[in-house]
Nucleic acid binder design. Sequence first.
DNA 1: AGCGATCTTGACGCATGGTTCAAGTTCTAC
DNA 2: GTAGAACTTGAACCATGCGTCAAGATCGCT
Lengths: 191, 191
Amino acid sequence: MTSETPRLRADAQRNVEGIRLAALDVFRAHGLNTPLDAVARAAGVSKGTIYHRFGGRQGLIDAVVEELVAERIKGIITAVGAIDDPVERFENYLRQIWLLQYDEPAANDVLLRSMPTSGAVNALCEHANENAGRLLADAQATGKVRADLTAEDVWLLIWERGIIARACAEQPRDGYSRRSEYTLRGLRSGS
Amino acid sequence: MTSETPRLRADAQRNVEGIRLAALDVFRAHGLNTPLDAVARAAGVSKGTIYHRFGGRQGLIDAVVEELVAERIKGIITAVGAIDDPVERFENYLRQIWLLQYDEPAANDVLLRSMPTSGAVNALCEHANENAGRLLADAQATGKVRADLTAEDVWLLIWERGIIARACAEQPRDGYSRRSEYTLRGLRSGS
DNA sequence: AGCGATCTTGACGCATGGTTCAAGTTCTAC
DNA sequence: GTAGAACTTGAACCATGCGTCAAGATCGCT
């Protein structure tokens, strides 16, 4: 029960942990596509070790993505869930997700499905999308949000903002979010 | 007066023309960052010849960009200039530019200033921006377009759509333009 | 026709980054 | 203490694409 696999040697175990920590740092700062060399260097091991222990980028991501972004996304879902007004709730959800995409390249990569073959990443992304779908329906029920908006539209709006956030690089955060706001206004009903 | 430089040999002249034509085709289809190998292959010459005749990507672009996109941009400016209502004029300008960005990767590259060191590209981009500034001012004078919108905002909105268009790849055109419309609505005054 | 100037070629070196694996190192059970 | 399994390394391979240049091909003038 304690450990199914034959147990790692002490040095290997140390390395696995070191690599995980390094990956958390490096991915957090530069996204899930950072060269594995960078992770290896940060962990003080060689590239080969990462391939050995995690099987490649995908495995490494699977091993850290939960700790890397799940908290953030769930935090937003929870925080926004406390808002009473459905329109406010929906709009704030988008605002926060969009800012998260700007602030955290790794979270952005998850929401953009950069690693479409990773189960862990997809699960997180699905989770976010389901929530968005619910919030959208509630908001539309008030009549204050355009009725022709679909759940897929919302996902694509998040995708679009993510693509922009990724390209933003050195552009100011408030400009980014001001322009996000224009899109948000366009989602409301009327004229 | 007929020709300052010592005149090219006939075969060289043929190649210059062939390369220009090939570049028009290839750039039109895949944007200004297409590997020069592709242009060379399309022209039936080798990479080296392009470097020889045009000095590299930049020179080649300078030699074709005018023919490649000036027409399109000027066409939009003219067409839109015929609209009476300033708001309509402004909004249609954005609509058309945004579609151009989706339809023509090369025009998109110009508007995104992909080649910041190319005078020819910059001139075209400037020209478009000046026009947008004028249209914005007129539209704002009616009070129907948000007063806090600046010319730089408009440029950045074009930049954002361009980044998205570039990433769109296999996404449907009408989804892209529907979402553009949301942003457009958000630019109007009110609420 | 032949010579020299002009022109083209394609293989080379550069850099990035993923992925593999033979060889060498370190651990640990005995 | 040591044998041998477990582990790590780093250089080698791949692929992409830019930019260069010595060698060879072609043109066109005489």
